[in-house]
Design a protein around this nucleic acid. Structure first.
Lengths: 153, 153
DNA sequence: GTTGCTAGTTAGCGTTGCTAATCAGTTTAG
DNA sequence: CTAAACTGATTAGCAACGCTAACTAGCAAC
């Protein structure tokens, strides 16, 4: 049985390298979206409309980063901002129809690096990775007892 | 059964977010090593001594990036370079004892973010993640038929 | 000796994170 | 009502990490 630190080490390496590869491949398919912007768009699609601060909190990034990411997506017409009538400081960010269409396209793309690679795995292996994705997202959820350390700063 | 693009999408999101979190947490524990430098050190430990070009190829990065990463690690005394007696252009990069000690420490750290999080999982879930790490690394291996697209410039 | 190739490095750029600072808007206290 | 305190979003600047283009030095082939 692998100890926690050993498993952590291996997982860390695998994730780090896969993330780098995803970044590299994201430029290969075309000038669409980086992994970061894709994840952001998915979050806004799922949780939106939401304020930049809420977005920052959800993505666990600082607000200046959120501002920039949202600005980028807005520039590409993938999200739009609308003011909050109740608070002049606040705006709400929502996905546009272009953004939704792009998400849909991304989610169905068969020729993309990872989808192609996954095709070579057995169904059991694919199920393992599906379960792992679930687990990874779970690991990212902050336990109720832990301080909200990183977001909204 | 999840289709390949759907699984790809979910995996991409999970990996992207976990990688970001690892980057964020790497500064939290102390000014040790980022995920990228850690992975690099592990590679040099495993495959070294090796030339910067070989390192670049193994990590699937371009040589200028390899130069910088190796330079960084060398600065911290974690790797050292030695000249190739047969070729004045070439040097070999190997892990120092300090580097080895750090790797050992990293590999046994129980208080680190991911290790702590993994502790809360069941043994079956941990096994799933261990298998997934293996699979991720396999997905990163270039099939024999694919061109060595990204490394060695 | 000359030409072509190769290894490693430098320079500059873009992306993605951060912190510090700022500005504008809202809320609270006197 | 006014001033102070607080809050949301943005700007500025920096570092890390990737890339490409260019360069220098060294090696191989002719």
């Amino acid at each position: 049985m692998t100890s926690d630190p050993e498993l952590a080490t291996r997982l860390r390496l695998a994730v780090t390298r896969m993330a780098r590869r995803l970044r590299q491949e994201s430029g290969a398919v075309g000038p669409e979206l980086s992994p970061t912007l894709t994840a952001a768009l998915a979050t806004i699609d799922r949780c939106g409309p939401l304020t930049p601060s809420a977005f920052a909190q959800t993505e666990r990034i600082q607000r200046p980063t959120a501002t920039r990411i949202v600005g980028r997506l807005e520039q590409q017409g993938l999200v739009e901002r609308s003011p909050d009538p109740d608070d002049g400081r606040v705006c709400f960010v929502a996905v546009t129809s272009d953004g939704r269409a792009l998400l849909k396209r991304i989610r169905s793309r068969k020729s993309e690096f990872l989808a192609k690679r996954l095709k070579a795995l057995t169904p059991a292996e694919q199920a393992t990775l599906a379960a792992a994705a679930e687990l990874l997202e779970r690991l990212l959820e902050e336990p109720a007892s832990a301080p909200a350390r990183r977001a909204g700063g």
